Amino acid sequence: MICKDMLVLELASVLAGPSVGQFFAELGARVIKIENAATNGDVTRRWKLKSEPANTDTPAYFCAANWGKESLPLNLSQNSDLEQLYSLVKQADMVIASYKPGDAEKLQVDYKTLQTINPTLIYGHLTGYGPEDERAGYDAVIQAETGFMYLNGESGGEPTKMPVALMDLLAAHQLKEGLLVALVQRERTGQGQYVQVSLVQAAVSALANQATNWLVAGQNPQRIGSEHPSIVPYGTVYNTRDNKQLVLAIGDDRQFERLSKALGTPEIAQDAKFKTNYSRVQHRQELNELLRQLIKNMDQDQLLQTLHKLHVPAGAVNSVADVFELPQARQMLLKHADTKPGVRQVAFRVGDEDPVQLTPPPAYKA
């Protein structure tokens, strides 16, 4: 276990911070989730689907990021509870916090305070907008403010929120990276570290090529559905004869030649309008219409098998239920005899170590 004997204190709620806590639990750390006793714990204990029972305190949303943890309800405005936390800080390797700026200081659980108790402590702090902006960060708002909603959706349609809290997840990944760097630094220097990540900066960093489409090429990206602004065909959804759907991800001209052969029309790869990616981008609509006509006369499974044999990037459009029929997805399941499955945060393997067996998300015990 990579993080065996580590103690992580999670002073965070919802998704970003807790997913980082589960990440370290999966690596073998002991993770204690400090829940706010004044508000009956993590708010996601009350985020329930219509189909879930009213009396559950471990609904599906909470189970997305809280495997392998112990729950400790504390009211940090009370001295006795604060002292209980401080006693844990003395033993801890890491704190994960998600307070908006100023709140940690009011509660006396900020990095400067806790560092005086434990100088080797690594403190990861998630905020919405950074240390100078007191606004709380909510994923849907961050998606709107950082261009993701504007870019997501069909051309001519309304801006559309991503179906997962993607900004939370991006920030969580940034914090994991920062905390791992801080652990390496502590091994070298013996000193603790403060790692600060904001949702808005994590989102901006993830704009990637869409950012440079504006910064470098001077083109302000617009909504184009699932298509790609500079590669064709890439991401477009095509319907097959058996009422299923697939997408293509043709990254170079050789792949397009093989696609053309698989569709029984090798000549289109020699057409000057489609021969190169640049020309395909110029004639996007004409090519997409041609591909739609060809693909709608073929069955999904048969076509995908042919494309895969020819090393043409293509895949079925799966529902979430379909996803967990994939062998790779089934390897990501967290299982325990007493509860329904969850999903791992750790998606890598180091050496031949078997994944840590985690306990289910903890119930809330006031």
Rank of each mutant, 00 (worst) to 15 (best):
P159I: 06
P101M: 03
A337D: 06
T306A: 00
V89Y: 03
L76E: 00
Q185S: 14
L175Y: 07
G235P: 12
V95H: 12
A272L: 04
D338R: 00
V200F: 01
E227P: 13
K48Q: 09
K106C: 00
P355M: 08
R254N: 15
E286Y: 12
H311E: 11
S260Y: 09
A60P: 03
V8T: 14
V281C: 14
A262K: 03
S87R: 02
N79C: 10
K309W: 02
P159H: 08
N152A: 03
H173S: 06
N288L: 07
D271K: 04
A144N: 00
S98Q: 05
F23Q: 08
L183V: 15
Q255V: 13
F62S: 11
P362G: 11
T39K: 11
F324A: 13
V200A: 04
F256Q: 12
A140M: 04
K50R: 13
A29Q: 12
A316Y: 15
L291G: 00
D57A: 09
D253W: 02
Q78M: 11
V200L: 01
V216N: 02
A217S: 04
P362Q: 14
Q84P: 01
E134Y: 00
A37C: 01
R30T: 14
L215V: 01
Q191D: 15
D352N: 06
G28Q: 05
V20A: 07
P73Q: 10
L151S: 01
Y123F: 08
G225N: 11
A92T: 05
K161C: 01
V312L: 09
F23H: 10
N277Y: 13
G315K: 10
V247A: 11
F256M: 13
S260E: 13
E289G: 14
N243L: 09
E26L: 00
Y234F: 14
I295C: 09
L170F: 11
G137D: 00
R258N: 06
G130F: 00
Y364S: 12
S279N: 09
C63R: 15
D322F: 14
E286V: 11
D93I: 12
R45W: 05
Q108W: 08
I2N: 10
Q108S: 12
Q191K: 15
Y364H: 14
G190L: 15
R344P: 00
D139T: 12
L114C: 11
G190V: 15
D354C: 09
L82C: 08
D354K: 07
L199K: 02
D168S: 13
I122Q: 13
P131V: 02
T189D: 10
A16I: 04
A208F: 07
Q91S: 11
V181N: 08
A249G: 15
P119V: 15
K309I: 02
R280P: 07
D5C: 08
F274E: 10
G156C: 11
M149C: 03
Y278E: 11
A366M: 01
A329Q: 15
A54R: 04
P53T: 07
D103H: 09
L170E: 11
L287T: 08
S205N: 13
E177A: 06
K33N: 06
H336I: 07
A347P: 02
L287W: 03
F274G: 08
